[in-house]
Each structure stands twice: as structure tokens, then as C-alpha cells.
């Protein structure tokens, strides 16, 4: 139980995907102009990431390892994620039209969201022999929650910044990157917590 708690704290704060591992930067910079959309994206990623952690674990343990196909891991994992994203897209379309429209073009981009693949791969390398099923799922959840926290907080900051009179060459990405850097400074306080 305590090891699961450690995984959660590590995933959300200490090894935050965006703020200390540089995973998922594209959506972090791309979908952080509005808090609501950021939250929606965070939830979509959470859903995909937990499922992906579970499924890639199963595929690795019951397919790749028994047949010594570990070198196919990258290909297998990315295909699984692509299929998952398609499914999420279809479900969202049915369930919440508004959210679907808000996320629109970004949803297919979860496929190339390196955070999802990154978590799936780190599940296999984090400890000797990789996490077990439950640990993988929890790690996926923690990573996604950390991603959502960073994304939503960043979106709120950018909403505030949008009302400022920034120097004009700070508009857009330079300003966003420097703001993200300062945010990362705050996250550094958790270094060594685990």
C-alpha cells in the first residue's frame, strides 16, 4: 500500500510528467489557453493513460515476453495507444458533443502525446522487471493526474497573462515557455521527496 502511495506522490509531484520529465509538452503548450479545455484534455489523457498502462502491461507480459518479442515493444505499444485513442474519440463523440468539439483536433494528437507512450515504457523500466499490473495502472493514473494538474494550473496562469500588457515579443510561445519554466522552478521544491 505504501509503495502505491509513493508511486502516486512521485507521479503527481516529484516526477511530474510535464514539469520534470518533459513528457507531453505539445499538448501542455497547445491546449492551455482555457482552463475548461485544459481540464477536458487532462481527463481524456487520464482515461487513455490508465487504460494504456493496463493494456500495454498485459500485452508485454502475455505476448511479448513469452515469445521473446521485446524488441517489438515500441511498435506494439504505439499501435495499442492509437487504437485506444480512436475508441476514446468515438465514445466522446457519442457522450459529450461539447467536449468533443472543444478537444476537436487535439484528440487524435493524444496518439502522438509522448506522455502516454512514455508512461507505458517507464512502467516496464521503473523497477527491475517492471511494475506489476496494479502498480502500472496506479502509475498511469498518477502520471495523468500530474499532467492534468500542471496543464490546468498553467492554463489559469495563461488566462491571467492574456490580460496583461506583455512586451509584444513575449506574445505566444516565448511567454508561455518562460512561464512554464518558472512553474517548473516551483515543482523543483519536491525534489528528493521520495
Amino acid at each position: 500500500m505504501s509503495s502505491l502511495l509513493l508511486i502516486i506522490i512521485a507521479g503527481v509531484l516529484v516526477n511530474n510528467l510535464v514539469m520534470s520529465q518533459f513528457l507531453g509538452i505539445c499538448p501542455f503548450l497547445g491546449i492551455s489557453k482555457k482552463t475548461e479545455t485544459a481540464f477536458g484534455m487532462g481527463m481524456a489523457v487520464t482515461f487513455v493513460m490508465v487504460l494504456a498502462s493496463v493494456i500495454t502491461y498485459l500485452i508485454r507480459t502475455y505476448l511479448l515476453v513469452p515469445f521473446s518479442l521485446e524488441y517489438m515493444q515500441t511498435i506494439a505499444f504505439i499501435l495499442v495507444i492509437a487504437v485506444l485513442v480512436q475508441t476514446v474519440e468515438m465514445v466522446l463523440k457519442k457522450v459529450s458533443r461539447a467536449l468533443y468539439q472543444a478537444l476537436g483536433v487535439y484528440l487524435p494528437l493524444i496518439t502522438t502525446n509522448c506522455a502516454v507512450l512514455g508512461v507505458a515504457i517507464s512502467n516496464t523500466t521503473a523497477v527491475e522487471g517492471g511494475y506489476d499490473l496494479l502498480q502500472s495502472a496506479v502509475n498511469g493514473l498518477a502520471g495523468a493526474l500530474g499532467f492534468t494538474l500542471a496543464l490546468v494550473a498553467f492554463a489559469a496562469i495563461r488566462e491571467k497573462l492574456a490580460m496583461n500588457d506583455l512586451p509584444k515579443w513575449m506574445d505566444g510561445f516565448p511567454g508561455a515557455l518562460i512561464a512554464a519554466g518558472l512553474m517548473a522552478v516551483a515543482f523543483q521544491g519536491f525534489a528528493g521527496l521520495i
Binding site: P174, L177, I178, Q188
Partner: peptide, 24 residues
């Protein structure tokens, strides 16, 4: 700090800022 995560973000931001400003 330049080698740590915040340094990465800030340094890229500053480079972008310089490139944007000079290309403008």
C-alpha cells in the same frame, strides 16, 4: 539551473524570444 528542467523551458523561451524579435 540551466541543466535542470526549469532551465530548459526558460532557455528555449529566451532563444525563441530573441529569434522572434530579430526576425520581426
Amino acid at each position: 539551473i540551466a541543466l535542470r528542467p526549469p532551465g530548459g523551458f526558460i532557455m528555449l523561451g529566451i532563444l525563441l524570444l530573441i529569434i522572434n524579435a530579430s526576425s520581426k
